[in-house]
Deep mutational scan, measured.
Amino acid sequence: HMTFVALYDYVASGETDLSFKKGERLQIVNNTEGDWWLAHSLTTGRTGYISSNYVAPSD
């Protein structure tokens, strides 16, 4: 899985979204569905959809 880092804080707007904080590391589970990616937070252990605009590759 690809690992990304959050560029900004994000508060989930629905049950399927994932809230995260700036600097949080996220593993991308599925990024084939446009701008919203299914991600797993390595910080909180939660999984949900994130906006690809809010993250950048961590490598």
Rank of each mutant, 00 (worst) to 15 (best):
I50L: 06
R25S: 08
A39L: 03
L26S: 00
F20H: 01
T43I: 08
E33P: 06
Y10C: 10
M2N: 10
E33I: 11
H40D: 01
A6I: 01
N31W: 14
W37G: 00
K21V: 10
A12T: 04
P57W: 11
L7M: 08
S13A: 11
W36I: 14
L38S: 03
H1W: 13
D35F: 10
V29C: 13
H40F: 13
D17K: 10
T43S: 11
Q27M: 13
N31R: 13
L18D: 01
F20M: 04
T43L: 10
A39W: 03
S58T: 13
T43M: 07
N53C: 15
E24L: 01
A56D: 06
W37S: 01
T44A: 03
M2G: 09
V5E: 06
L38W: 09
F4K: 01
M2I: 11
I50E: 00
A12E: 03
A56Y: 09
K21F: 08
F4L: 06
L18Y: 02
Y8K: 08
L38T: 02
A56T: 13
H40C: 12
S51M: 15
H1E: 11
Y10E: 06
N53F: 14
G23H: 04
D9G: 06
L42H: 05
R25Q: 13
G48P: 00
A39M: 13
S19N: 05
G45H: 07
Y49W: 14
G48Y: 03
G48R: 00
Y54A: 15
S52Q: 09
G14I: 13
L42N: 05
M2L: 12
S41H: 05
V55W: 06
D17I: 08
M2F: 09
A12S: 09
V29Y: 10
D59Y: 11
I28S: 04
V5L: 07
R46L: 13
N53A: 15
N30R: 08
T43Y: 06
T16H: 14
T43C: 10
W36N: 08
P57N: 07
S58D: 15
H1D: 11
S19F: 04
D9M: 08
Y54T: 06
L18E: 01
L18G: 01
Y8N: 06
A6K: 00
I50A: 01
S13T: 14
A56S: 10
S41M: 01
H40P: 00
L18S: 01
Y8F: 12
T3Y: 14
T47L: 07
D17M: 15
T3S: 07
T47Q: 08
D9T: 06
Y10F: 08
T16W: 15
G48W: 03
I28K: 06
V29I: 15
V11K: 08
T16G: 14
V55M: 06
D17Q: 15
A12D: 01
A56Q: 12
G23R: 00
G23L: 01
L42T: 06
N30I: 10
F20E: 01
N53W: 15
T44P: 00
T43G: 05
G14K: 15
F20K: 00
A39S: 02
A6T: 11
G34P: 12
T32D: 10
T44V: 03
D35N: 11
D9C: 04
L26P: 00
Y10N: 05
Y8P: 00
S52D: 03
V5Q: 04
N30A: 10
W37E: 00
A12R: 04
I50K: 00
G45M: 04
S41L: 02
G48C: 04
A6L: 03
V5H: 04
I28E: 00
V29D: 05
S51V: 05
W37N: 02
E33S: 12
T44N: 04
S51G: 07
A56F: 09
L18C: 03
G48F: 04
K21D: 05
G23T: 01
T16S: 13
L7W: 04
T32H: 09
V29T: 06
D9S: 06
S41D: 03
G14M: 11
L42P: 07
G45R: 04
S51E: 06
F20C: 04
L38K: 03
L18I: 07
W37M: 06
R46T: 05
S13D: 09
L18W: 03
K21W: 05
